[in-house]
Computed example of a mutant assay.
Amino acid sequence: MKDAADAAEDITNSRPLELVARAGFAVSGILHFLIGLVAIRLAMGGEGEADVSGAVEQLGSQPAGPLLLWSSFAACVALAIWQTSDAIFDFEHLPAKKKLGKKAKAALQAVVYAGLALTLFSFASGAGKDHTSSTSDLTASVLKAPGGYALLLAVGAGVAVAGIVYAIRGFRQSFAKHLRLPASHKARTAVTVLGVVGYAAKGIVLLLVGLLVIVATIKAHPEESTGLDGGLRALRDQPFGMYILAAVGAGLICYGIFMMVRAKLAKM
């Protein structure tokens, strides 16, 4: 059993898998970049779907779209496997409490990239669908299930807290410890600024999504749980919302560029 575990660890830590996994960060960056562009378009009165599925749909509509979707799918699968390996095999030298936190974080990241891979697979295989209504439908289904009310409140609170954590991580620049920053002072500053602005914007949108889930659950109106796109549209409807939404869109573009840079600089 130990030999099998060692072999699995060697495979998941191999250089080829690392290179493909790094591309997963770039895929995430491209999708956030596209979401940011749509957010700015919405702020200016335009149309579009400012969420992951909408971004994936845009990616698939480009020349060589199927190739882009399938290669992005492979990259996200590789990154999910890499994060799963971290959750299982790494951090053994740390104290128990810190080790558990690191493993949990890696496991959560694995779930996130696995979910992204599933979305990419759905569109690559031609099964993409109306994602806005599906979010509301999922909320309605969970709300009717035993314990669904408490589960949705917990999910909404978890997403909102994750948004706060992202913003704090950005302002404290704690993301920098996961990077091999360039030697050039200007390059280091550029990467840091992208990270601070990007993490803050990502935190805002996660907080909005979490609050929407909580409000929809409390009011028993699942149609109000409309995911990221709905959160950004709700932001636009607030006083000075078009300016705030444009700023958030610019921040998401910064986060997207940061994630593309992370593909090269990340400590794996």
Rank of each mutant, 00 (worst) to 15 (best):
K2R: 14
D3R: 08
A4V: 12
A4K: 14
A5E: 14
D6R: 14
E9V: 10
D10R: 15
D10H: 13
I11H: 12
S14K: 03
P16L: 01
A21I: 12
R22C: 06
A26G: 09
V27K: 05
G29L: 06
L31A: 04
H32L: 14
I35N: 08
A43K: 07
M44S: 09
G46D: 08
G48W: 01
G48A: 00
G48Q: 03
D51Q: 00
D51F: 04
A55T: 12
A64T: 03
P66F: 07
L67N: 10
L68D: 09
L68K: 14
S72I: 04
A74I: 14
A75V: 06
L79N: 02
I81T: 14
D86C: 10
F89Y: 15
F91T: 01
E92R: 01
K97H: 08
K99F: 01
G101S: 06
A104K: 01
Q109T: 02
A110T: 11
A110V: 01
A114P: 05
G115Y: 12
A124N: 11
S125W: 01
S125V: 09
A127P: 02
K129Q: 07
K129V: 06
T132L: 10
S133N: 11
D137M: 11
A140E: 14
S141P: 05
P146E: 00
P146T: 02
Y149T: 02
Y149F: 13
A150I: 07
L152Y: 13
A157E: 11
V161C: 05
V161L: 15
G163F: 12
G163T: 12
I164W: 15
A167K: 02
A167Y: 10
I168T: 06
G170P: 06
F171Y: 15
R172A: 04
F175Y: 04
F175E: 04
K177H: 15
L179G: 07
R180W: 10
A183K: 11
K186M: 11
A187N: 10
L194T: 10
V196W: 03
G198N: 03
G198F: 08
A201W: 08
K202M: 07
V209T: 12
I214H: 05
V215F: 03
A216V: 07
A216E: 04
I218A: 06
D229N: 11
L232G: 09
R233C: 13
A234W: 01
A234K: 15
A234Q: 12
L235A: 02
R236F: 13
M242P: 04
Y243F: 14
I244R: 13
G249A: 08
G251N: 03
G251R: 00
L252A: 09
L252W: 02
I257H: 02
I257D: 09
I257V: 15
F258P: 05
F258Q: 07
V261Y: 12
R262H: 00
A263D: 00
